[in-house]
């Protein structure tokens, strides 16, 4: 197998990293407190769990507004446009090729931070699960302040289901960070901003078409 020289590129800006880790922290806290409110276990005490959950939830909403603003003003939203190109080779990679030491079919680059599978997953999360979670959460929070057009049970049940889906994502996401060339290379990329890629990998045109400047 041919070994390519690895180089580091600056992939994640400061805001992006801040948002990512803040989001990670908030999601973790929200899931832990949320499941306590749901009655799954006793940990901080119901009242504390509710207070913390509400506070973080509201913080999340405000932070998310900044994220969306950043996404659209920088044009980074185009990174989430789904594509079927190479989607199946990525799926094949993770389910088969990875066990044989074959290289990843799609390399990261400034113009294409996410592989096609990631794009699909992140789009689903950012455009579907998170908005559902934020809307149901906000309506739940404001249940006594605004006309109640959705029953609390529906809001709560959807909110719980999506939370569990997000927990599912979190588990897979955490695991996937270990699939770089070393166990922690993806994580260190998200901490420092610099991600290691193979020098010789040619970035395909279709990958960067949308984000190409000029």
């Amino acid at each position: 197998m041919k070994v390519n020289k690895r180089i580091k590129i600056y992939l994640y800006t400061r805001f992006e990293r801040l948002w990512h880790w803040l989001q990670a922290l908030m999601v973790t806290c929200l899931i832990i407190t949320g499941l306590e409110i749901h009655g799954t276990y006793k940990l901080f005490g119901f009242q504390t769990a509710v207070t913390v959950h509400n506070f973080i939830g509201l913080t999340w909403l405000i932070m998310f507004a900044f994220f969306v603003f950043w996404l659209f003003t920088t044009g980074e939203w185009k990174q989430y446009i789904p594509t079927t190109q190479k989607l199946f080779s990525v799926i094949r990679y993770y389910s088969w090729d990875i066990f044989q030491g074959k290289p990843h079919p799609v390399q990261k680059s400034t113009g294409a931070k996410h592989n096609p599978l990631q794009r699909l997953a992140y789009l689903g999360i950012s455009a579907m699960l998170l908005p559902i979670q934020m809307i149901t959460g906000l309506l739940y929070y404001l249940h006594n302040d605004i006309p109640q057009f959705i029953p609390l049970s529906a809001l709560a049940n959807i909110h719980t289901l999506v939370a569990l889906f997000l927990l599912n994502f979190l588990i897979i996401h955490l695991y996937m960070t270990t699939t770089g060339h070393s166990l922690f290379s993806h994580i260190s990329g998200m901490i420092t901003g610099w991600e290691e890629i193979y020098e010789t990998t040619k970035i395909q045109d279709w990958e960067t078409k949308a984000t190409k400047k000029g």
């Binding site: 749901h38 119901f46 049970s153 049940n157 289901l161 939370a163 927990l167 897979i172 955490l174 695991y175």
Partner: peptide, 26 residues
């Protein structure tokens, strides 16, 4: 609907199956 007391059995099952599925998968 009393938070902490009530849950939807069906939705909770689906959700937890997806979580267990993820754990087993990884």
């Amino acid at each position: 609907y009393l938070p902490g007391r009530d849950k939807s059995k069906a939705l909770d099952t689906i959700g937890w199956l997806s979580v267990i599925g993820a754990i087993l998968g990884v």
